[in-house]
Amino acid sequence: MTVRVMLISAAHSAALREARIDDEGPLDEAGARRAARAASAVPGAGRMLTAPDARCRETAAALGLRAEPEPAVRGWDLGRWRGSTLEDLTVREPDAVAAWLTDPSAAPHGGESLDALRERAGGWLEGLAGEGGRVLAVAGPAVVRAAVLHALALPAEAFWRLDAAPLTLTELSGRAGRWNLRIGRPLEQ
């Protein structure tokens, strides 16, 4: 059975604008305004989901979606690094950052490794494949990137080369083990 999974990358938050590792905080005012302006461009779907963090829930609400929380698309758990900048972490913990960026099984922050994130996002995606229809989910950029990695069977290193800009739509269509990708188009016109 074919399913179309449409992933909307959440709007801007203060953490994103300040280049901090996501702290699961709320949208900032500009992000909320941009999401509200993009509402008319959101495609229809039989199921609408959102990651449970504030940024994603508020993006879904600003887009006018009645989305149910989906724990499988929650943000990447980066443990004690949450709220820090990569620049600060590189100064304080250079070896840990190097391991995190080069070893997909590393989790020096005490949260999820890239492998664990990819497995979670991939498991969710494969679970949807048996349902068919159209599913729309608002998620953080790391989850969107991990879903793309899984769908296209890309090597883990490709994660660091993908970008999921705020308020872009990434579409995956297919079925378990065979996916096609339509790369993130902006929702704003």
Rank of each mutant, 00 (worst) to 15 (best):
L63W: 09
L114M: 12
H109D: 15
A41T: 13
G44R: 08
P104E: 03
A61M: 11
E58W: 08
A38H: 04
P94Y: 04
R37G: 05
T50V: 00
D28Q: 10
A32S: 15
L7A: 07
A98E: 02
V91N: 00
S84L: 04
R82P: 00
G110P: 10
W100Q: 05
G79L: 06
R66Y: 06
A10Q: 08
R34F: 05
L125Q: 12
E70I: 08
D77A: 13
P108F: 04
L86W: 15
G127L: 02
R82F: 01
P108H: 00
A38N: 01
A96L: 09
A62R: 12
P69K: 13
L101T: 06
I21R: 00
G79W: 03
I8K: 13
A62Q: 10
L117C: 11
M6V: 13
A15D: 15
L27I: 10
E58G: 05
A41L: 07
A98W: 07
P43R: 02
E58S: 01
L125H: 13
R80E: 10
A72Q: 03
G111Y: 06
V73A: 02
V97R: 01
A51T: 00
W100C: 07
A35N: 03
R118W: 14
S9W: 02
R37M: 07
R80D: 03
L101M: 15
W81P: 07
D88L: 12
S13H: 04
A67G: 05
P104K: 07
E112W: 04
S113W: 13
G75Q: 09
G46F: 08
A10Y: 00
G44P: 06
V5P: 04
L27S: 03
D22F: 14
L114A: 03
A61C: 10
G110M: 04
S40V: 14
R55E: 09
R47G: 02
D95C: 01
L89A: 05
S105D: 15
L114T: 11
A116N: 06
G79N: 07
A98L: 12
G64M: 02
D115Q: 15
A121Y: 14
A129Y: 12
A10G: 14
A72N: 07
A19M: 13
G44L: 09
L63T: 10
R55Q: 12
V73W: 03
P94W: 06
A36S: 13
S105V: 15
S9C: 14
C56Y: 04
A67P: 12
A32C: 07
W124M: 15
L63F: 14
D95T: 01
R17I: 00
E29D: 15
T59D: 06
G25P: 01
D23S: 14
A96V: 09
L7H: 09
A129H: 08
A116T: 13
E29N: 07
E68L: 15
R118L: 14
L65N: 08
S40M: 12
E87S: 10
S13W: 03
G111R: 07
P94A: 01
S13K: 03
P71M: 12
A36E: 13
L89D: 06
S84G: 00
G122A: 11
A67W: 14
R80N: 08
A107E: 09
A121P: 05
A36V: 09
A107I: 05
R92A: 15
S105L: 14
P69Y: 13
G44M: 08
L89V: 02
P52A: 11
R92W: 08
L78M: 15
S9M: 08
S113Y: 09
A60K: 03
D95W: 03
I8N: 07
G75M: 09
G64P: 00
P108L: 01
L89N: 00
